[in-house]
Design a protein around this nucleic acid. Structure first.
Lengths: 143, 143
DNA sequence: TATTGTTATACTCTATAACTATA
DNA sequence: TATAGTTATAGAGTATAACAATA
């Protein structure tokens, strides 16, 4: 049963502040988990992206909002640790695809489990109804 | 008028995912605004913290989760740009207080205005009622 | 010509360790 | 002795510019 609908209004300064605070809290959790696995936040994101697909360097850079030269270094370090592999793109001779190794997959899965476990409590006090509403609201903040 | 209360439940994977996505989106906005003012995200945070108070190096480091040596470099660069000042703490001869200069204040205010302006649209579609509920929910994710 | 990716270079961010000064 | 802060050092993350290979 939804609340009484009200007119859309200008967001309060408190809400924006809350959004920022919540973002920093979430990032702190992610950064801590990354560090516990000897990864940077960016590397953790890369592993997350590659978990279910294999993408080209440029796609990765675009998605993360980084320069391709930055990706080269990032992937080089991950590769040196045996977490990812570079494979030639089958249809474009210039492109390089990146994918997780078995070790990378295992690490990505372990980290993802930790993330879910650590962030879950922060929303565990919410009722199912509130969770749906929060997810819906956050979804609108994303697009 | 609140919704029909329901029992607290385990947060869905989607909600956790949404929290993470929303955090990355928010951080991207903040990072972009910081860069537009030639600041790093951390420097922007420092300006934000110092906006309404003057704190010691260690407090700053603790709040940001950084080492004090990291703070020394960070503050040194901000000071070189004329954004902050180091002043001796009046009651503890070992401590150093940091505070914004007039230029730093102006920059902090301009950045804060931009942050509010850019994040507001993401929540503008929500009704006042929904905004209150989102703020409340986010607040609970923070503690 | 335009795109994909790498390399060279430089600067910021970050931590660890060693140090000075004050409590 | 313990705490506050700085400096020296080193490594990761980042961008810009120049480059090679492919489209």
């Amino acid at each position: 049963m939804p609340s009484q609908p009200t007119e859309p209004t200008q967001p309060s300064a408190e809400l924006v502040d809350m959004l920022v605070q919540s973002a920093f809290t979430t990032m702190a959790v992610l950064t801590r988990i990354a560090a516990a696995h000897d990864l940077s936040l960016t590397q953790l994101r890369v592993l997350g992206i590659l978990r279910d697909r294999q993408v080209r360097m440029t796609e990765l850079a675009d998605y993360l909002g980084l320069e391709k030269s930055t990706m080269s270094g990032l992937i080089a370090r991950a590769q040196a640790r045996g977490l990812v592999q570079r494979v030639p793109n089958p249809t474009d001779g210039r492109a390089v695809d990146v994918r997780l190794t078995a070790v990378g997959h295992e690490l990505a899965n372990r980290a993802a489990t930790r993330v879910a476990a650590e962030l879950a409590p922060s929303t565990a006090g919410l009722s199912a109804n509130e969770q749906r509403r929060l997810a819906g609201a956050l979804h609108r903040t994303i697009s």
